[in-house]
Amino acid sequence: MSSASGRVTIEIPAQAEYIAVLRAASGVIASRLDFTLDDIDDLRILVDEAASVLLSAGAEQVLRCDIDVEDEAVRFQLHAQLPDGQSPHGEGFAWSILNALAHDVRMDVANGEHVISVTRSRGPVLDGAL
């Protein structure tokens, strides 16, 4: 099987109704990479949770989602401008889910833009709790 790599960028209005577009795109990409149904479910949840964190923090105008595929891993980078002084809420169920289902999660601010990066490789995140 040839190794896959590349990027899909999706920009949506910063409105909750559009998160479904990100979920659908993630599902399509994951299924083309032959991820399992469980992996696909997890990827949809991951992009959803990351987007929800930024929208809940007041993301303005647009949310940009870069979906990078590198061999056997998918990375979502969600970018948003937040109102001055706002930062994403750092706790709660969204983060429990992100940390449980992703192999790597990080949050950064660069050039006034908040970025949440979530990486998931093929196969489950190994954790005794699951």
């Binding site: 960028t9 920009e11 949506i12 595929v69």
Partner: peptide, 8 residues
Amino acid sequence: WPGNVQVI
């Protein structure tokens, strides 16, 4: 994978 795809 078809490389880079700028989407929506």
